[in-house]
Amino acid sequence: MYKVFIIEDDALIGDMLSMYLAEEGYGVERAENGKSAMAYLELHQPDIILLDIVLPDISGIELCDELRKKSTVPILVVSMKTEVMDRVHALNAGADDYMCKPFSMRELSAKVAAMIRRTHYNQQRQEQPSSEERPFPSQGPNKIFLNYDKRSLFVNGKYVETTFSEFEIMKLFIANQGKVYSREELINAVRGFDSFVNDRAIDVHIGNLRKKMEEDSKQPKYIRTVWGVGYKFVNA
């Protein structure tokens, strides 16, 4: 049974989510504030987190950032806030998707299922040592490579945490390094998992990857901007 952890202080919405997802066959746990959420996550590992942005003791964005430091579990933000910048802040903090209240319970259930399915499909793939898991050749000492089975990104041999959307973008880059990708092509790479995805969201994902991978994110060596077109990856 897959486990869903809901962080929601509104009793009505929390109960509604809990009952609906339990009827769908999920194991559901719930916290009403950030403190109890963090205490729960010290002891348990859910398959997905549903997170409200407005909580009584901490900003949901701050909590999302703290959760992402500790875990790569998928985070679906569910919020009354509908402004684009609220969504951008959530993405910057490490959220994988964003839904605005009110929402369709069927759509939410479909998102939860898709996020869990994507996660566990990749975690359960049989280990197959291949060129995908070895560093890609480069002319210098810098090497970036992916372990597809464990959904892991390594920069110069050091593990770097990524969100699921960031990993999907890197998969595309690694498979075709040097190729220039438009924002639309990158949108298509994550569409269906990150439903809030547009040009601005892609720029946020790229910015986050640069901060994690580059020595100087303002002068990137790996993910380079091709002005007027999009981005390309150079493993140099």
Results as ranks from 00 to 15, higher is better:
D10Q: 07
L12D: 01
I13D: 00
G14E: 00
L17E: 01
L17P: 00
S18M: 03
M19V: 09
M19E: 02
Y20A: 07
L21A: 01
A22R: 13
E23I: 03
E23H: 12
E24N: 09
E24K: 14
N33D: 13
K35G: 08
K35W: 10
S36C: 07
S36G: 09
M38P: 06
Y40F: 14
L41H: 06
L41S: 02
L41P: 01
E42W: 01
E42G: 10
L43I: 09
H44S: 09
Q45T: 12
D47P: 01
D47W: 04
I53Q: 02
I58E: 05
S59M: 07
G60S: 11
L63C: 03
D65L: 08
E66W: 04
E66D: 03
L67E: 02
L67F: 07
K69T: 05
K70Q: 09
P74R: 14
P74I: 12
L76N: 09
V77L: 02
V78L: 14
T82N: 15
T82P: 00
V84K: 15
H89M: 11
H89R: 15
D97G: 13
Y98L: 11
C100D: 12
C100V: 15
C100F: 09
P102R: 12
P102D: 13
M105C: 06
M105F: 13
R106N: 10
E107N: 06
E107L: 09
E107D: 10
A110N: 13
V112N: 11
A114P: 05
R117P: 00
R117I: 07
R117L: 03
R118V: 04
T119P: 03
N122D: 08
Q124R: 13
R125E: 06
Q126N: 05
P129N: 01
S130H: 05
F136E: 05
P137H: 01
G140T: 07
P141L: 11
I144R: 12
I144N: 05
F145R: 13
L146T: 12
L146D: 14
N147L: 11
Y148F: 08
D149A: 13
K150A: 12
